[in-house]
Amino acid sequence: MNNYDKNNILNLLDSVSPDNADLLETLHIIQEHFGYLSKEALEIVSELLSLSVAHVYGTATYYADFRFVPPPETIIGWCSGPACLLKNGVGIRDAMLAVFGTELGEQLDNPSVEVCMAQCNGTCEQAPQIWVNNKVVGKLTAAKAIELARSIKEDI
């Protein structure tokens, strides 16, 4: 959904108000709907919450969750937690990056994919794991990660 129409955004945000601890919530709502935070959206948020655009932008860029360009089709979240690291998490990460030829957090157009950093959510019995579009792929190994990355690459 990429229709960054002002009314469209305002409809989503009818419950937020200035000075009411609503900024994070507002940004989450927009990102959930559009997949990222566009310039237009940040400006509307600024107006709606009586904050300067710089403040909104500065706040949004502080947090790892927010994106500022349309997301890729496939987001691979790589767990950076200790249980996963102990079980060759780094090897898994680098193997996938080598297949795609990207760096962590770098988005590729073709295939439309990104491997990004993610945090442990306490499902460490599945370690080492990644989340492919939020779906867990657990008990991974470097070889399985390579196969998975290759299948994504070949699927385009």
């Binding site: 107006e47 680098d94 795609f100 030829g101 157009d109």
Partner: peptide
């Protein structure tokens, strides 16, 4: 990490989003 398909990357810098001055007064 060796970059094998490096012609294919999309720049990710968020900072390019707001380069134009904002017209909003709040």
């Amino acid at each position: 990490i060796p970059r094998i398909f490096s012609e294919n990357h999309k720049s990710l810098t968020p900072h390019s989003v707001l380069i134009e001055p904002s017209s909003i007064t709040t």
